[in-house]
Every structure is written in C-alpha cells, then in structure tokens.
C-alpha cells in the first residue's frame, strides 16, 4: 500500500456478528414522534429542537437555513433533519442538557408552511482535527430523514467564508469531483445584523448534494 494512502478504519461485518436492525423510512408522520409541535401535538416539558445555542453560548451566533428539494425540483415539505456539530473550539460536547448554553445536537423540519425551510439557531463550529492529524474545515453534520428516504442521508454543511480551510479539508477532498464539493458549501447572508448561512439540499439530479457513507 502506498504510504500516503489511508487505510480504511471501519470493519467489515462477519458471520460471527449480529446483523444491524434494518432501516425503514421515517414516513410522512415522523413529526409525531420527533417534532411534536409540527404535527400539532402538545410539547412535553423538554423537547429536542432547533435552538442549539442561546445568547450565552461561546462563539459566533449564526442561523443556518435551507430547503430540501427532490429530483423533480419540488420542495420536500415533510423532512426531518438532525444536526451534530462541535463547539466554537472544535470540541464535540456529548452531554445534551437544555440548561446549558450550547448543545451540539439539534433537530429541525421542513413543513408545508411558508417557504418550507428548515432552520437551526446555533454557533459557528470550530475546526476539528482528525485522528491522523489532518484538520477538517468547520462543518455541521446533517442527517436527513423523510418519507421516501429508506435510510437517512448523511451530509455535511461547510461555510462559504472558510474558503482556505475548505480547500485543505480532507473530507471535502475525498469527494472526487470538485464541482460536487460545492454542493456542501453554505452561502453567507447578512440579515438584520444576524449572520445566516443557507444550504439547499438537493436529493437527486442536477446539483445533487453529496451524501456520505461512514
């Protein structure tokens, strides 16, 4: 093996192992279970939702928004998205507690209302160093669940104003097509003094978003 080549670090399944439970679509009513108010259900005392950072959170407050678009160019109005990101220092904080100013995990959804946009209120994550010492550009991990999606689609959101870090990011560079790398770069918008990034996720066809297996 060429010395600069990374060895794959996941393991193949053997017959000695249990098989993973098979995935199924989250279906059209995913919100009943994972986004109660979207379904019209009363919220419980604590819900996991899209306000990942409050005003006391350390780091640059940002809003992240977008749509999900199908292979016909139509809006997907029933998706559920999950986000997982590092804090402003590039550390993943695993403890989820709504009393802390920042949580690395959040959920959002697209609905038939308004522009069918999902949105997250968060902070801009710091760069994360991989086990081999290479630095990954700041990013948010996104998983997309919806009717018609049999197993969640995993992607990453990167930031337009991190061009230098993006060019060096080993994960973006693992995408063979430079054109396709652009599908993961969120565009920066300034709105009423707030910083907003927009990433539309295209499930299929022209400009199709890159989805990962890991």
């Amino acid at each position: 093996m060429h010395k600069h080549m990374q060895q794959p670090n996941s393991l193949s399944c053997s017959e000695l192992m249990l098989r993973e439970t098979a995935s199924q679509t989250a279906g059209p009513y995913v919100h009943i279970g994972l986004a109660l108010h979207v379904a019209g259900l009363p919220a419980r005392d604590e819900e996991i939702w899209n306000r990942m950072a409050g005003p006391e959170a350390e780091g640059e407050p940002i809003e992240v928004v977008g749509t999900v678009i199908d292979g016909n160019g139509d809006l997907v109005r029933d998706a559920l998205l999950e986000a997982w990101q590092a804090d402003s220092q590039g550390r993943y904080r695993t403890e989820f507690d709504l009393e802390q100013p920042f949580n690395g995990f959040g959920r959002t959804a697209t609905t038939a209302e308004g522009g069918s946009e999902w949105s997250l209120t968060t902070i801009k994550p710091g760069a994360v160093t991989r086990g081999d010492g290479k630095v990954m550009a700041p990013h948010i991990n996104l998983a997309i669940f919806a009717r018609g999606i049999n197993i969640q689609l995993q992607t990453r959101l990167y930031f337009e104003d991190e061009a230098e870090a993006n060019v060096a990011c080993p994960v973006l560079n693992a995408i063979e097509s430079p054109t396709r790398r652009q599908t993961l770069i969120a565009k920066r918008e300034a709105v009423d003094g707030k910083v907003r990034y927009r990433l539309d996720i295209r499930l299929q066809g022209e400009g199709e978003t890159v989805f990962f297996d890991f």
Binding site: Q6, Q7, P8, N9, S10, D70, G71, N72, D74, V76, R130, G131, D132, A146, R147, G148, I149, N150, L153, P170, V171, A174, I175, E176, R180, L203, Q204, G205, E208, T209, V210, F211, F212, D213, F214
Partner: peptide
C-alpha cells in the same frame, strides 16, 4: 424522486 443518483462518498478515515 427522493433517492440520490450519485454514489455515496465513503469516508475511509472516520
């Protein structure tokens, strides 16, 4: 209409 046509990109180094 909700399935990608491109191959998934495998992250060899998780």
């Amino acid at each position: 209409a909700r399935s990608p046509r491109q191959a998934l990109v495998s992250l060899h180094q998780s």
